[in-house]
Simulated assay, not measured.
Amino acid sequence: MNGRDLKDRYINPYTDFGFKKLFGTEINKELLISFINSLLHGKEVITNLTYLNTEHLGTSEADRKAVFDVYCENEKGEKILVEMQRGLQQYFKDRSIYYATFPIREQAQRGDWDYQLKGIYIIGILNFTFDEKDDNYFHHEVQLLDNHTKEVFYDKLTFIYLEMPKFNKTEDELHTMFEKWLFVLRNLSRLMERPKALQERVFTRLFEAAEIAKFTKVEYEAYEDSLKAYRDWKNMIDTAMMIAKKEGHEEGRQEGREIGRKEGRKEGLKEGREEGLKEGLKEKAIETARRMKTKGYPIEEIMLLTDLSEEEITQLL
Rank of each mutant, 00 (worst) to 15 (best):
D5W: 12
N12A: 11
N12M: 08
P13Q: 10
T15N: 03
D16T: 12
F17S: 06
F19W: 08
L22H: 06
F23I: 00
K29Q: 14
L31F: 08
L32V: 05
I33A: 07
I33C: 06
L40V: 14
L40C: 13
H41Y: 11
H41R: 14
I46Y: 08
T50S: 15
Y51C: 05
L52E: 06
N53A: 10
H56S: 05
H56V: 09
L57D: 09
D63S: 15
R64Q: 09
R64Y: 05
K65W: 07
K65E: 13
F68T: 03
F68Y: 04
D69Q: 09
N74S: 13
E75F: 01
I80N: 08
L81D: 04
E83F: 05
M84Q: 03
G87V: 00
Q90V: 00
Y91C: 00
R95T: 01
R95S: 03
Y98T: 06
A100L: 14
T101R: 00
T101L: 01
F102H: 08
R105N: 11
R105H: 12
E106L: 09
Q107W: 08
Q109R: 15
W113M: 11
D114Y: 13
L117Y: 05
G119V: 07
I123Q: 03
G124Y: 00
N127V: 01
T129F: 03
E132K: 15
D134R: 07
N136R: 13
Y137N: 10
H140Y: 09
V142K: 07
Q143L: 10
L144Y: 13
L145N: 14
L145M: 15
D146Q: 07
N147D: 14
H148Y: 12
E151R: 04
F153N: 12
Y154G: 06
D155Q: 09
K156E: 09
I160R: 02
Y161G: 02
K166W: 10
N168L: 14
E171I: 11
L174D: 06
L174R: 13
F178G: 05
L182P: 12
L182A: 13
F183L: 15
R186S: 15
N187A: 07
A197Y: 05
A197G: 09
R201E: 15
V202M: 11
E208N: 15
E211Y: 11
K214V: 14
K214D: 14
T216W: 10
T216R: 08
E219A: 09
A222H: 12
Y223R: 10
E224R: 14
S226C: 06
S226E: 02
L227T: 05
K228P: 05
K228T: 13
Y230V: 01
R231Q: 13
R231N: 13
D232M: 09
T239L: 01
A240E: 04
I243P: 04
A244C: 08
G248V: 02
E255L: 02
G256N: 00
G260E: 11
R261F: 10
R261D: 13
K262Q: 12
E263V: 00
G264Y: 07
E267K: 01
G268F: 01
L269N: 10
K270F: 05
E274I: 01
L277D: 01
L277R: 00
K278C: 02
E287T: 03
P298H: 07
P298G: 10
I299Y: 11
I302Q: 06
I302L: 04
L304T: 03
L304G: 03
T306Y: 03
D307K: 01
L308D: 03
S309R: 03
I313N: 01
L317S: 13
